[in-house]
Amino acid sequence: MSRLLSADFAKLKKNKFFWICIIGMFLFGIFMTGMDHIAMISDGYVPHITNVLFVYAITVALLIPAFTGLFIGTEYSDGTLRNKLIIGHTRRNIYLSNLITCSAAGILFCIPYIIGSLMIGIPLSGIEDGTLKGIVILILLSFLMATAFNALCTITGLLCQSKAMTVVINILAACFLIVMSIYVLSKLSQPETYSGVSLDTATGKVSVEEEIDNPDYLEGTEREIYQFFNDFLPTGQAVNISQAGGASGRPELLAAYSAGIIIVSTAIGIFIFGRRDIK
């Protein structure tokens, strides 16, 4: 296993797409924080470091499927997966080595954004008292989310023997899940009531009346189901984390969901990959 990890990390170090993503995420962090600061000041608001600090969560949800598809897909397109099998490495170790390497890459995509954002954000806005703990928790949750997302992408990467097909499936699935998660979040964010407003046509006076129940507000089992998808799906977590928490549940629950996805998807992936005919 250590030999495979050594080879895979050496390959990662030479991967152009990886370095482009790392540099791109660093510049993106600087850009987003700088732009947010300018916009807040010009609109008369007080800028907070957390406004855009977690935007990377949704960005990596798009980068990871592309990267994992390309990184693992190369093993099939160049045929190098065969070299590992021929000299006697087990399929389980090959699977785990790819998962660990891609997960490390996924986490490394987050870090340059955070560094870039903090480099600009701390001198301009500073860190408010009491927010540091929350920031650390969200960052750790985002790492777990990225790993869970990687675990899902590794399944397609190692089970689909076409590099192009892997990338297409991964990106399409990620886009679908992101859209679905945004929809779920918008449903959960509906207010329970809204204020009734009436207009007196004679006087032209607008008056605020009593609170009216919002028919779009989710309740009972329906709300629980939406909340589950919001917390369970890695993209749901990504959307919530990018909004500094959003409508997500307790951190330990999110962490447990991510860990569950990693364990179950890896077990399924290893089981199927172990029985697959390699050409």
Binding site: R3, L4, S6, A7, A10, K11, K14, K16, T74, D78, G79, T80, L81, R82, N83, K84, I86, I87, H89, K279
Partner: peptide, 26 residues
């Protein structure tokens, strides 16, 4: 044992030396 099955299994984006280093690591 070693094998070349159908097409050579080599990383196209690497040099010959880097390909061999990868194989040595594996």
């Amino acid at each position: 044992m070693g094998a070349v099955v159908e097409t050579p299994s080599i990383y196209l984006d690497m040099t010959a030396m880097d390909n061999l280093k990868e194989q040595y690591r594996i």
